[in-house]
Simulated scan of single mutants.
Amino acid sequence: MNPPRRRWQAVPISSTPEQLADLDPTLEAVAAAVEDVPALLAAANEAGKSAPKPGGGDTARLWELLASVASIDVAAGRILEPHLDAGAILSQAGMADFFTGTWAVFAAEGPGTRLTAQPGPQPGGVQLTGSKPWCSLAQFVDHAVVTAHTATGGRGAFAIDLRDAGVTCIDPEWTSRGLREIPSGTVHFDRVAAVPLGDDGWYFQRPGFAWGGMGVAACWLGGAVALGRYFKAALIRGAHSQREPDQVALASLGEVDRILTSTSQYLARAAELVDGGRLGGVDAPAALAAVPPAELRHAEAAKGEPEGGGGQGAGAWSEALRVRGTVAAAVDRVQQLVSQNLGPGPLAFDDRYGKCMADLSLYVRQHHATRDDAELGALTLKGEHAW
């Protein structure tokens, strides 16, 4: 008897299929838990016990895990990525022992909301008061890394327990068709005990800030791979039904292959740079952490770099912008090619395909498109490039 067909296939970035076999238990758990948020969080918790940390020598393996999970279900990747990112942040802060249970990262800012860090009742203690927008799955996870404004005018990162009595999670009016199981709403904090992670500005200045941004792009790539595989399978099914693909379909599949292959190879190269210590941090004054990350990077660019960039302490965010922009463009083009060739049928009648399209469309909009390219252009103008 033939073994049952697996519902997953890992996404290689630099590993061979044999080397990817150790991902099978996680991928099996994810495949069995699609749309079940507690089960997906349990799978993320288990994966986090052994997942590589970015910059630790196995960054490509970490991104293969993220891409592979997202190729099964984009929402599952959206759940796993912040959990692993929180673990990496805690490790970089020298607090790896805090990484128990399930975690999120809440670092967004929004009009009308402000979260402030203040001295607590205990000597050296810190409390958070105020509101934080875009807090995904706050009702489900145990802990979070949260950024808050500090008395110095900067922003710091803090570890908190979301079960604290001072935390109030408001159910958002989440009408999205994409990532429907991952509502993102505003969380209110009333004197919530917090543990500082690094000094003011550390969260944004560490190289890991850029590395985490590239990890999100690995999830986007996984969703695009899923669509490419679906497209190929559809053409094979058509051929078996005497509907051989025409030149347009073959050209589209060829372009999808070219895009996915080159994008995967770019991520492999970026992982080598991360692990080789060739991408440093922002090295900006701590006070700059009070401004949004984009403005912080512009301020750093204004200091000037030698032509060609490079060197420890330069280039991490430039490379993150390149990676994220390259993957986002790949996702947009793959979605266009696949949807144009397959037409409305699978969008109307194939739940898995439609879910992947909707989830990926929302997730990839974390990339700021032309604005991120403008930010990269400012850094390029100052010399942060390799050409």
Rank of each mutant, 00 (worst) to 15 (best):
M1N: 04
N2L: 05
S15I: 00
E18K: 07
D24A: 15
E35N: 13
A47T: 00
G48H: 00
K53E: 00
P54M: 06
P54T: 01
G57E: 07
G57P: 04
L62Y: 01
L66N: 04
S68D: 09
V69S: 11
V74A: 13
A76P: 02
A76C: 05
L84P: 02
D85E: 11
D85W: 01
G94V: 07
G94M: 06
T100G: 09
G101E: 09
T102M: 06
A117Q: 00
Q118N: 14
G120Y: 07
G125N: 06
T129N: 07
S131Q: 14
C135M: 01
L137I: 01
L137Q: 06
A144K: 10
A144I: 14
G154W: 14
I170S: 13
P172R: 07
T175L: 13
L179R: 09
V187P: 02
V187Y: 08
F189E: 02
D190A: 13
D190R: 12
R191F: 09
V192R: 14
G201H: 07
A218S: 15
A226N: 10
I236N: 05
G238M: 10
A239S: 10
H240K: 13
D246N: 15
A251R: 14
L253C: 00
E255P: 03
S262K: 08
S264Q: 12
A268N: 12
L273H: 12
V274R: 07
R278K: 15
R278L: 15
V282H: 10
D283T: 14
A284H: 11
A287T: 11
G309C: 12
A316T: 06
W317D: 13
A320Q: 14
L321E: 15
R324A: 10
A329C: 03
R333C: 01
Q336M: 10
N341G: 14
P346K: 00
P346M: 01
D351M: 02
C356V: 11
Y363C: 01
H368W: 01
G377L: 11
G383D: 05
